[in-house]
Write a protein that binds this DNA or RNA. Structure first.
Lengths: 340, 340
DNA sequence: GACTGGCACTCGGATCATTTGAGTGCCAGG
DNA sequence: CCTGGCACTCAAATGATCCGAGTGCCAGTC
């Protein structure tokens, strides 16, 4: 059906269109890429490609532009992920290495990703579900107000206020603290939630009421839905490069960026950093973002992704470079997090 | 110079222009606002107002639009801050009350502010400088890796990793923890930085090396410049309502939103929640944002502002409502924080 | 059979002239 | 001091025209 040369033509069309953002005609195509055939031949190939649904004409007497299917074929078969230059790699590591804590890592990552890809960057915070308890701290602020601090293996810190039903005894708090830590430390948050249930019973009946209050709050922190979905976004200014048709291209993206729930769906399930997910135009789950593509991948340890990061951009983006950048950033972030 | 009626005309022009975003002519003005005089008279007044620099014509044979000076006069003399409806107030409190921690408060505030004003909202995190030490925690993760956690009176949590020069003794850590807390608790971060310097000397010479390493890192956290400047932004999607001239109006704002340093300057010095700062067009410190205004105010306790929050929007915004919303949100956030 | 040069055709976008009407400034009269 | 009237201005909308990049198709060539 599609011989080698037709695929070459498709590749040329995609590359040209990505570079110029203008429909590309048979003549320009032959001029710019040395295909070794005449425009007329290219026209025939184009007709075939159009027949197959890989390209279209915005209107008669205009050049062709790739369809979503065209991009898909390009990404799957016609291109290779571009690797970054050593200089870029170095810049990434040194920039990320300067981070002081998890928040800082995430902020820097978003910024970096936006800068390299010149697209809108999205980074999900390491999932709570997949984290382990590193430490639980109970701090007495006033006799009737306690602060619970949960520190996870991924560096996330969650805090909650508890107002116990009656004054608390410092002795008891110390006791609780150490029992919590021995019971929970090293466990996944999901497991820890179960272990937690058993803790109150180990205390004297008189104290159980108080302990239960604390345990309940802690449990909330473990299974916090909202916290689970934390996301950082950056590089919105890159949207200004979308060109015209503001209403159709920029507006829906800006709106989506405000809705973290939507972003999470866009990013999709975390994959390991080797696998890149690319969703092109209509392939993504939001009608409004039909002119937008998403390039995402998981980050974290090799065996298991902690969360997802990626970018959102126009379907006519430079996929090889973008994919390379996303993959590279994901790897380096994984590395940094492993060290911390 | 400007009699009562001329001011009425200016007010009418501003209100009309804000509502329609179109240059307003003498006839429409008389039709819409009952000024009790004829268009011709209004024209004379307009000529005078233009003479004084409060309004201009985009071109001859067009209506008038207010200048920055016109808006300034309007805000200072011709309008009163609009108070929110009881329903709105209730919505604010109940929405903010659901917050679980400081991060959540800030996130909710940004969202709220953006929603009510339908502008881009900016909220600065409570300043570290003005916070007090609530608790310092030293957690041993591995014998050669410690985690320092600083919790401030404003609910901020800063964390730092320390890799001590040699294995640490659990006994010593416990000792250090309690000495740090008795030495620092309740102090302002700025004072605490000084008190901190004296801590190593209270330890046996053999331990001082280790303690010094910890103290140094803690000191960094106290005086963290970057952390000091934390900011949350929201409602960027509202920029789509700017209308056309995307390049001139939307782009610079989006770019500014990425640069937190710029935002801090835009927000300016925190004032107490009673005082609203309004910067109109050229009054703000960024040339690129000459078509935008900033409405900001401090939040925190009555006596002293902890940080600033506000909105950025086109100069032709509805000042009375916006100012009312910003002030109200600032007050309610102050309240919530005081309770925590 | 595959490629190419040639040719008629299409149609979006640029260019330019024309019209329209909201709005103005100014003046004479109440 | 206000108002109705009038001539004037000019941005924006409308419309006619032209241009050319690009197409599809066909007959001829390798």
């Amino acid at each position: 059906m599609l011989d080698e040369r037709k695929l070459d033509v498709l590749r040329a069309i995609v590359e040209d269109y990505v570079a110029t953002h203008e429909p590309v005609g048979s003549k320009t195509l032959v001029d710019r890429h040395n295909l070794g055939v005449s425009p007329a031949t290219v026209r025939n190939d184009m007709a075939a490609l159009e027949e197959e649904g890989y390209i279209t004409q915005p209107h008669t007497s205009a050049g062709r532009i790739p369809t979503d299917a065209g991009y898909r074929l390009f990404v799957d078969k016609l291109s290779t992920v571009k690797t970054l230059s050593p200089a870029e790699k170095k810049a990434i590591t040194s920039f990320l290495a300067g981070a002081v804590d998890l928040d800082d890592v995430v902020r820097r990552t978003v910024r970096l990703l936006a800068q390299i890809t010149r697209q809108v960057a999205i980074v999900q915070y390491p999932s709570l579900n997949r984290s382990h308890v590193r430490h639980v701290e109970v701090v007495t602020m006033t006799p009737r107000r306690l602060l619970l601090v949960l520190i996870t293996s991924t560096g996330r810190v969650e805090q909650r206020i508890v107002e116990p039903p009656h004054d608390v005894d410092e002795q008891l708090i110390g006791d609780l603290r150490s029992r919590l830590n021995t019971a929970l430390a090293g466990q996944r948050l999901t497991e820890a939630a179960t272990s937690l249930a058993a803790v109150p019973e180990t205390f004297a009946p008189a104290d159980r009421h108080l302990v239960a209050a604390i345990v309940t709050t802690l449990l909330e922190a473990f299974t916090d839905e909202v916290g689970e979905q934390r996301i950082a976004v950056g590089g919105a200014a890159n949207l200004t490069r979308y060109g015209d048709d503001f209403e159709r291209n920029v507006k829906p993206v800006l709106e989506a960026l405000e809705e973290h729930v939507i972003l999470l769906k866009l990013l999709g399930e975390a994959t390991n950093p080797q696998t890149l997910t690319v969703r092109i135009g209509h392939e993504n789950p939001y009608e409004e973002l039909a002119t937008t593509s998403v390039v995402a991948t998981g980050y974290g340890s090799k065996s298991e992704a902690l969360a997802t990061l990626g970018i959102v951009g126009p379907t006519h983006m430079d996929y090889p470079s973008t994919m390379g950048a996303v993959r590279a950033v994901a790897r380096y972030v994984s590395q940094i997090l492993a060290d911390t």
